[in-house]
Design a protein around this nucleic acid. Structure first.
Lengths: 216, 216
DNA sequence: CCACAAATGAACCATGCGGTTAATTCTGTC
DNA sequence: GACAGAATTAACCGCATGGTTCATTTGTGG
């Protein structure tokens, strides 16, 4: 009686549209992250799939729409991962440090997402702006910091003249750049900062910087 | 008797190859910075020029070569501008602060360059690596900081366990991100941080952060 | 089991675009 | 002022690539 969830187990079935779409989205994410919107080839995406080029246009109208869906999905996934972090139990400055460290690690593990954001910035966030789905997915990121701030400012541990948005900007800048600009930075100045040890050290330096910026 | 400099005044002359090449390079820089390597159209570049598409291939063999030349020229120009800054006269921490503030302002004014670097990062710095011209143009950036460090560490103002490379990384991250990710950041969280006042404030926050990270 | 829709496959199409050909005009030289 | 080589123009080309057409298969509800 109860119908299976669309992409659930359908053993015996020959068709599973939801799975096909998910498969396309996965392949497209890889391809767009690797080569950008213009650089990506639909036929290459198709080859990474268990289906054909035809189906890509069947489920997603055109290249731009597919790209937008990829972007939406990537944001959704990343924010969901971030949401798992529970900082409410920690004292404000410790929570902040933990958030920075987590973000540093998380960004390093999320190169495809970082690259999609880079690509979107090259395109002046045109497609991001077109997407209504994303709009309020990001608020949670700020809310998490706002909570830290209000708690910390109540106890006097955090200076009153800093905003959650500024803190988020700092954290993002340092953690994002570390992944996004590794190629040119490494080429220009060597890869010394990208060994495991150097990265661990950098991680603490970044945490120190942000905490120091917030401390009263 | 004395021949004019290639791109100098050639009034009366109908041909000026050097000027044509410079013109192409200028137009190509605009186009590549705006649309990326794949997004840029040679015909669009030609239209922004006083010459034709054919001449682009005549002077620069193909699209990739043109792009590489654009990249080289952009790096050369930017490092030349940065070199004008004279920090030797200032005490170490003051020099560092001045460097951060300068870099913050300079990056804001150099969006096309920032975008070229973003684009190059998307391409894993492939073309940058191909260019031998650029290799040691960047050393000066590190040397400038190294000088500050050695001076500051001699007097004990600067902590001994920080490297010029780390400082450069911090400065770059904060100043670069401010320009590179403005589109997505603004779209996701609003443009509050990008007003003149907020930017001025951010500029000081960034300077504080870096100086604090360096201070013993 | 039939009708109808959703899903799929193979072959095809239009054209934008990077790059070229070949002929023409400059410019400096002997 | 003729010759050689560089600079320039206009017209052209191949083909990769986004997107489509049309026919066929697969699944579902009556």
């Amino acid at each position: 009686m109860e119908e299976n969830a669309p992409s659930g187990r359908r053993s015996g079935w020959k068709q599973d549209p939801a799975a096909v779409q998910a498969d396309i989205l996965r392949a497209a994410t890889e391809e767009f992250a690797r080569n950008g919107l213009d650089g990506a080839r639909i036929s290459d995406i198709a080859e990474r799939t268990r289906t054909t080029k035809r189906m890509i246009f069947y489920y997603f109208q055109d290249k731009q729409t597919l790209y937008r869906r990829v972007l939406e999905e990537a944001y959704r996934k990343i924010r969901a991962e971030e949401a798992e972090l529970n900082l409410g139990a920690l004292p404000p400055l410790q929570a902040l440090r933990r958030l920075v460290e987590f973000t540093f690690d998380h960004h390093r593990r999320s190169e495809p997402f970082i690259r999609l954001v880079m690509i979107e910035n090259i395109h002046a966030a045109r497609h991001l702006r077109d997407s209504d789905l994303i709009a309020r997915v990001n608020d949670s990121a700020i809310e998490r910091i706002r909570d830290i701030c209000t708690r910390g400012q109540a106890t006097g541990e955090i200076r009153p003249d800093i905003t959650p948005l500024e803190l988020h900007w700092m954290i993002s800048a340092l953690c994002f750049f570390n992944v996004s600009n590794r190629p040119t930075f490494g080429t220009n100045f060597g890869d010394e900062l990208f060994t495991e040890q150097a990265q661990a050290r950098l991680r603490e330096r970044v945490a120190d910087m942000v905490v120091a910026a917030a401390r009263a």
